[in-house]
Amino acid sequence: MAETSYKELSINGLWKNNPAIVQLLGLCPLLAVTGSVVNAIGLGLATTMVLICSNTAVSLIRNVVTDAVRLPAFVMIIAASVTCIELLMQAYTYELYQILGIFLPLITTNCVILGRADAFASKNALLPSFYDGFIMGLGFMVILVLLGGLRELVGTGALFANMDLLFGPGAASWELVLVDDYKNFLLAILPPGAFIFTGLIIALKNRIDSGLKARADALKEKPVKGAKRVRVTGNIS
């Protein structure tokens, strides 16, 4: 695949076709577990790893499976990847695994993963499929972390609490208390807060896109500097 195509994949995964705020896929875990940054990073990493593994495996078997069993094969690959990620989290981040709960196995039904497997990995070579899984997962995780950070900050007045659940005991000191004696704002932490902040993020992206489009249109209409007008004289018969 050409280098420009990798650039397009990056722009699509992170901005133009972001699975969370453009395609609006995977909203159930997005809204449910983003009450803190550590939860968001944990789920984001798990989803990204599943995307990478499933895209890679689907690309490898794309010329082997028939159309009749294509989707069941993809689902089995995704389910196997999710099971492996669950086992790893049980072994190394058990407390975070318990917090994320049912939303880890539900990654199997995430439309982002099956959609990329069917729409991209089943039609492209190994390396582009691997990169597509990575960049789509990264785009999803960026929104998860942004949403988790906003909800944690507004809800508790602090950031990066309980990071030791994911990064070990040394990360316990990473917590930043930005407002002392903060009265917890429960709306931000509860599910309604997730809807509110998600809507604000989508509105901000749409506003930026509108501004960029207006600027591009203005540049197209602006006359070229130094251009001279040609005056035509004479009669046309």
Rank of each mutant, 00 (worst) to 15 (best):
M1K: 10
A2M: 06
E3I: 09
Y6M: 06
Y6Q: 02
K7S: 08
S10Q: 09
I11V: 08
L14H: 14
P19H: 03
A20R: 10
I21N: 13
V22C: 07
Q23S: 15
L24Q: 06
L25K: 12
C28K: 15
P29D: 10
L30T: 14
L31R: 07
A32L: 13
S36N: 13
N39F: 12
N39P: 10
A40T: 09
L43W: 03
G44M: 06
V50C: 05
V50R: 01
C53R: 00
S54M: 05
N55Q: 08
S59M: 08
R62A: 14
V64S: 12
D67P: 00
A68K: 15
V69Q: 15
P72F: 01
P72L: 02
A73G: 04
F74G: 00
F74H: 11
V75D: 03
I77K: 00
I78T: 12
A79M: 08
A79S: 13
A79D: 03
S81D: 05
T83D: 02
T83A: 15
T83F: 12
C84S: 14
Q90I: 01
Y92P: 02
E95T: 11
E95F: 01
L96G: 04
Y97P: 00
I99G: 04
L100H: 04
L100Q: 04
P105A: 11
L106R: 06
T108S: 06
I113Q: 10
L114Y: 06
G115A: 03
F120G: 11
A121F: 09
S122E: 10
K123H: 14
K123E: 10
A125F: 07
L126K: 00
L126D: 01
S129Q: 08
I135T: 05
M136F: 15
G137E: 13
G137N: 07
F140S: 12
G155P: 09
T156I: 02
G157N: 09
G157Y: 04
A158S: 14
M163P: 06
D164F: 02
F167I: 02
F167G: 01
P169R: 05
S173W: 04
W174A: 14
E175W: 04
L176K: 11
L178F: 11
Y182H: 05
N184Y: 01
L186Y: 01
L186Q: 06
A188V: 05
A188L: 12
A194K: 00
F195W: 10
F197L: 14
T198R: 01
I202D: 05
L204R: 02
R207F: 11
R207H: 07
D209H: 04
A214R: 08
D217C: 02
A218M: 01
L219W: 04
V224W: 09
G226V: 07
R229H: 08
R229V: 11
V230N: 02
R231M: 06
R231Q: 11
T233G: 07
G234M: 01
G234S: 07
N235K: 08
N235I: 06
S237H: 14
